[in-house]
Amino acid sequence: MSEKIVEVRNLTKQYGKQKALDDVTFSIKKGSIVGLIGPNGAGKTTIMKTLGGLVYPTSGEIEMYGATDEKGLNHARTRMSFMIEAPYEKEKMTARENLEKQRLQKGIPDKKRIDEVLKQVNLENTGKKIVKNFSLGMRQRLGLANALLAKPELLILDEPINGLDPEGIVEIRELFRRLNKEENITLVISSHILSELSLLCTDYVFINNGKIKGVFTEDELKAECSEYIQINTDNNEKASAILIDKIGIEKMDVTKESGIRIYEKLDEIRYISKTLYENGIIPVEIAKNEVSLEDYYMKMVSGV
């Protein structure tokens, strides 16, 4: 089992009467790529800010690299890099000047590191162009370059592919994969682009209204997003009873909105149809479907 490098336990953050985080508990394993998934205002950025020491929790505990006290957490943060809300950018400076300022702040002795990270994010040819004239994508890349500057063990990135063009998204995805596989960097990424996260992440944390809605590994989520048989009949209540009694179905959801969903005996669609018919139920719809990550996301965050 992989070593847990970050553990968040019962974390609550309250602004007045509003709970931005409500009893949040999850952990980050070394070498994983964790996707933090939730709609705007769900609490993703607040979690990241709390890990970064920008926001004090109202209650709960954070453990990072074995440390729980302020001094230890600050030391742990020297092994991590963040890009939260806005990427690091002084608008009137060039990319190189921005990184030089950060190099000094982080106490990195090697000046050549700036060239290395600029090359990694394809910003090596920006010359004297100041950041004010950068596109949104270029700014995101600069933020990533800054995050990579100190060779972190854990990267925490808030919406890192926001503003990137499709080509840029592919490049950055490959960069994340490379950093994870070759340099063994653990990543925590929040994003609204679920399809992107599903191509990258090994672990998922679903959050909404400050509450954790589910924590899954890649395999667990694949299982949850599996195929099912969708059935709608003239009498779903009676149909579901027949499915249980006559066919022995156990894994099944029945809702007014979606009808009946069966998650087992997926190859017996004909037999199911025939059994329902023989018992006086007329199937209006019976088909094999698949739960997409988007469907599952909607189900997790809004209960639909």
Partner: peptide, 13 residues
Amino acid sequence: DKTINYELLSGHN
């Protein structure tokens, strides 16, 4: 521009 936050994020108290 919130770049002061990156001093905290880098582990300075």
